[in-house]
Simulated assay, not measured.
Amino acid sequence: MPVRDATPDDVEDICLLIEEHARYEGKDDLVLDRGDMTKHLFGPEPKAWVVIAEVDGEAGERVTAGMALCAWTFPSWDAKPGVFLDDLFVKPEFRRYGLGRELMAELGRRTSGRVEWDMQMGNAKAEAFYASLGGKPVEGWVKYRWLPDQE
């Protein structure tokens, strides 16, 4: 099952996957700006990157089945670049084919450091999937968020 780097031609599929993921998580009103997404992923100073999972469609064409949207991190105490996985989503009809594992394996191949992500509490399926990969919650740390434009 091929996994490849996204290109600007994939922006529509990337946005559709993120919007579908939002609906799956209960946020029905998310609509992304395709122009902003193109600029932030493929502009002169990209802020993130995407890996696409594809499958063969019924007519032999390649079909986008899932994706991982990531950004580089640099944890100072490790002194190694790492990957922050912001969004991992495989369309429900393509689950149980190993695509999530393939996407995660690709992220692991891209770093000598750590791969980290957040997971919504109460998502038992995601928790079981990540645990099956050897992923563990980070004990003793609390996630904070600051939105300076909203003060």
Rank of each mutant, 00 (worst) to 15 (best):
E102W: 05
L103W: 07
A124T: 09
E127C: 01
N123H: 04
V115N: 12
L133Y: 11
A126T: 06
A128K: 07
Y130S: 00
W117Q: 02
E116Y: 09
G108M: 13
G98E: 02
R110T: 05
A128P: 01
A131W: 14
E102Y: 05
D118V: 05
L103E: 05
R110K: 13
R101Q: 11
L133S: 05
A126I: 06
D118A: 15
E127F: 06
R95Q: 02
A131T: 13
K125G: 11
M119I: 11
G100H: 10
R95Y: 06
R110A: 12
Q120H: 12
Y130M: 06
E106W: 00
G98M: 02
G134Y: 14
G98Y: 00
A124P: 00
M104T: 01
E106G: 01
A128S: 07
Q120L: 15
Y130F: 15
R101P: 00
A105H: 12
E127P: 03
R110G: 10
M121K: 12
R110C: 09
R101K: 15
M104N: 02
M119A: 14
G98D: 02
Q120F: 12
T111W: 12
L99Q: 04
K125R: 10
A105M: 12
A105Q: 14
A131C: 10
R96F: 03
K125C: 07
R101V: 03
R110I: 01
R114F: 10
F129Y: 09
W117P: 01
E102I: 04
A131E: 13
E102L: 15
A124I: 07
K125A: 15
M119Y: 07
Q120M: 15
R101L: 06
L103F: 06
G108T: 08
G134L: 15
R101W: 02
R109N: 15
L99P: 01
Y97S: 00
M119W: 07
F129A: 06
R109V: 04
R96L: 01
E127K: 06
R114A: 13
E102Q: 15
Y130K: 07
A128M: 01
L107I: 10
G122K: 03
A128C: 05
M119E: 08
L103N: 09
R96H: 05
A128F: 05
Y97V: 02
E127A: 08
M104P: 03
W117E: 04
